Amino acid sequence: LRQRHVACLARSERGLGFSIAGGKGSTPYRAGDAGIFVSRIAEGGAAHRAGTLQVGDRVLSINGVDVTEARHDHAVSLLTAASPTIALLLEREAGGP
């Protein structure tokens, strides 16, 4: 079961505080899956403080732009754009009992 949710992050002077992996033109985060995933969350960064991202979340869109088939460098450029806030649509595998 997959759950979707939106995370809104305000960029700090240190950026957004998370890294992505995967996407076309880069090493897959999961074998056989060209999706883009949250690969790291920086301690004390914007994403960590927001508490809405988890490592392993699939990134579906960035500020309304679909990145499900995107190249890695395109997703990075969307994240590093000048916008002071970033809205992410994420998909998470629902774990637990």
Rank of each mutant, 00 (worst) to 15 (best):
T85V: 09
S77C: 10
A10W: 07
G35D: 01
V65L: 07
R40A: 14
H74N: 08
S83W: 07
A10F: 11
G95A: 14
S77V: 09
E91N: 02
G25K: 03
R2Q: 05
S26H: 10
G64A: 05
L78A: 04
T27I: 10
D57F: 01
R2T: 11
A42W: 13
A7T: 11
P84E: 14
V67P: 00
R40F: 15
L53V: 15
S77D: 11
A46N: 08
I41H: 00
C8I: 14
G51E: 07
V76L: 13
D73R: 06
S61W: 06
H74R: 13
G45Y: 05
V55W: 04
D73Q: 08
E91G: 03
D57K: 01
E93R: 07
A31H: 11
I41Y: 02
T68R: 12
G45F: 06
L60Y: 00
R49L: 11
E43C: 09
D73T: 09
L89Q: 13
I20F: 03
Q54Y: 06
V6N: 08
V65S: 09
R4T: 10
A82P: 14
L16N: 05
A94S: 14
G44I: 04
P28D: 08
S26G: 14
F18Q: 00
R30F: 09
I20H: 00
T85R: 11
D33R: 08
R4A: 05
A50V: 07
C8Q: 15
L60S: 02
R30D: 08
D33N: 10
A70Q: 05
L1N: 11
G56A: 04
H5N: 06
R92M: 00
G35Q: 01
K24D: 06
G25F: 07
G44N: 11
A34T: 15
G35S: 08
E43M: 10
R4L: 07
A47W: 04
Q54P: 01
V67R: 00
V67Q: 03
I62H: 04
R92Y: 00
A70N: 01
A47S: 06
S77P: 02
A75M: 02
A21D: 06
L78S: 01
I36W: 05
V67A: 04
A94P: 14
G45I: 08
R14L: 09
G51P: 04
D57L: 01
I36P: 02
A42Q: 13
V38A: 01
A75T: 05
L79M: 14
E91K: 01
D66P: 06
D73C: 09
L16I: 09
I20P: 00
A82H: 12
R49T: 13
V67N: 00
L88Y: 00
R40C: 11
I62S: 01
I41T: 03
S26W: 04
H74C: 11
R40Y: 15
L88R: 00
P28M: 10
R49K: 15
G96R: 12
G25D: 13
V67F: 03
I41E: 00
H48Q: 15
I62G: 00
H74W: 11
H48G: 08
A94C: 14
F37I: 03
P28G: 08
R71A: 13
R71Q: 11
G96L: 12
G32A: 05
V76N: 09
V55F: 01
N63H: 03
Y29Q: 05
H5Y: 12
G17R: 02
G45E: 12
